[in-house]
Simulated assay, not measured.
Amino acid sequence: MVMMWDAFLSAVQERGEYPSRQEADRATRVVLGLLGAHLVGSVRSELAARLPETCALILLNPLPAAEPLTPQRFVRATAAWIEGATEETAKWDVSAVLSVVVDSADEELTRRVLLQLPPGYDTLFGRL
Rank of each mutant, 00 (worst) to 15 (best):
E14N: 06
N61G: 00
A85C: 10
V12H: 03
R50I: 01
L47Y: 00
L117S: 07
Y121L: 04
A80Q: 13
D103C: 08
L117D: 01
L98C: 09
A90P: 05
V94S: 02
A37W: 00
A37V: 11
W92L: 07
S104N: 14
R73H: 14
L60A: 01
R73W: 12
V113F: 08
A105N: 12
P19K: 09
A105Q: 11
G120N: 10
A65C: 06
G36V: 00
L69T: 00
L39K: 01
F8R: 07
R26E: 15
D122E: 14
L98P: 01
A96M: 07
G33W: 00
W81K: 15
A66R: 08
Q116M: 07
E87S: 13
E87H: 10
V94I: 13
V75S: 14
H38L: 01
L34T: 00
L98N: 03
T28I: 11
L109P: 08
L63T: 04
G33Y: 01
E108A: 13
V113L: 10
A90Y: 14
T89P: 02
T123G: 07
A37C: 07
L115S: 06
V113I: 15
I82W: 02
R44M: 00
Y121M: 05
S45A: 05
D25S: 13
R15T: 09
S10C: 03
T123K: 12
V31F: 11
S42G: 04
A11C: 06
P68L: 15
Q72E: 10
G126D: 09
E46F: 03
S104R: 11
L32S: 13
A77K: 10
L124W: 12
N61P: 03
R127E: 09
D25F: 15
R15S: 10
V30L: 02
D106L: 05
E83W: 06
L117K: 01
S45Y: 01
L109E: 13
L32N: 15
E107Q: 13
L9M: 08
T54D: 12
E107N: 10
K91C: 11
A37S: 08
Q116H: 08
D93A: 10
T86C: 11
R50F: 05
Y121E: 10
E107D: 13
E14G: 04
L32E: 14
V113R: 08
A96K: 10
R21F: 11
T89H: 07
D25V: 11
R76H: 06
Q116R: 05
D103A: 12
A24R: 06
